[in-house]
């Protein structure tokens, strides 16, 4: 067990963002503790990807602050500022001209961890995601699920503190999706990383997240936060049949739908 996880490890304060006339995010405040698995849930187009991009430093907020470990983020990304983060995107973003091994090694090249333990580190992480035998293949030779595994391996290889996942399993078939979800849960348990994941599936959010943050439709703010709490520990196959799961599921669904109805009424 880790001792004393830091509270408010990653903080978003009053984040607003708009693209021209289009207001995407308004006044979003979110606290993430160290070692927490937070799922952000919202309907399509509600700006949840934008929120994650702001967290990962890809986009800058118009207003508000992003604070990591007590210090505000720099405005420009550098390898030094980004080496604490790992990111998995909706599409895998593997580079076609690199083999799986070389793709996974990419962050080490950028962050300068390319020392003696580089190769063994890559091998190790490929083993974790079950791609050890496929290191020499090019991305086009892999299935969608395997590509996404490679992308996950790439996000973990430099041992980041925080992992951002933007609907990572959307491009994956249903069976791989479930398997990958459980593997991600496993990785989280083993490595105790802080994970923020975006999803549009309530079940996935409940299965993975220790806390589920529901976003309203654009211009979005946070509609509600739900602690999955204790349930977290006993997340196994029959977790979905428990009473607690269904009542929580209903509540989240209501929050999502209620917001939709309100917007329509206005």
């Amino acid at each position: 067990m880790r001792l004393g996880p830091k509270k408010n490890f990653f903080v978003l304060e009053n984040i607003s963002k708009s693209y021209g006339e289009n207001h995407v995010l308004t006044e979003i405040t979110l606290y993430v503790n160290e070692g927490e698995f937070v799922c952000i849930l919202g309907n399509t187009g509600c700006g949840k990807s934008t929120l994650l991009k702001i967290m990962g430093g890809i986009e800058l907020p118009d207003e508000g602050k992003v604070i990591f470990q007590g210090t505000p983020r720099e405005r420009k990304n550098t390898p030094a500022s980004q080496s604490c983060f790992g990111m998995v995107f909706q599409k895998d973003q593997l580079m076609d001209w690199r083999t799986v091994y070389e793709n996974v090694r990419f962050p080490l090249e950028i962050f300068g961890v390319n020392g003696a333990d580089g190769p063994s580190r890559v091998e190790e992480i490929l083993d974790v995601v079950g791609l050890k035998k496929f290191g020499n293949l090019y991305p086009r030779e892999l299935s969608g699920g395997m590509r996404q595994r490679a992308a996950i391996a790439r996000s973990l290889v430099h041992d980041p503190n925080v992992l951002f996942l933007d609907q990572p399993f959307d491009a994956v078939d249903a069976i791989s999706r479930k398997a990958l979800s459980f593997e991600l849960l496993d990785i989280w348990r083993k490595t105790s990383k802080t994970i923020v994941m975006i999803t549009n599936s309530i079940d996935e959010a409940l299965l993975l997240g220790g806390r589920v943050v529901v976003m309203s439709d654009a211009p979005s703010s946070i509609a509600g936060t739900f602690e999955v709490g204790l349930l977290h520990k006993e997340k196994t196959g029959d977790f979905r049949e428990s009473q607690a799961f269904w009542s929580l599921r209903r509540k989240i669904r209501q929050t999502l739908e209620c917001r939709q109805l309100c917007e329509e009424a206005v």
Partner: peptide, 24 residues
Amino acid sequence: SHLEMLSAHGCSKWQIFTKYTFFN
């Protein structure tokens, strides 16, 4: 989307050219 991935790694312009643009 690839540029976002590179930006998430904090790549410099030169790194983006040598590791991405050139091969792409």
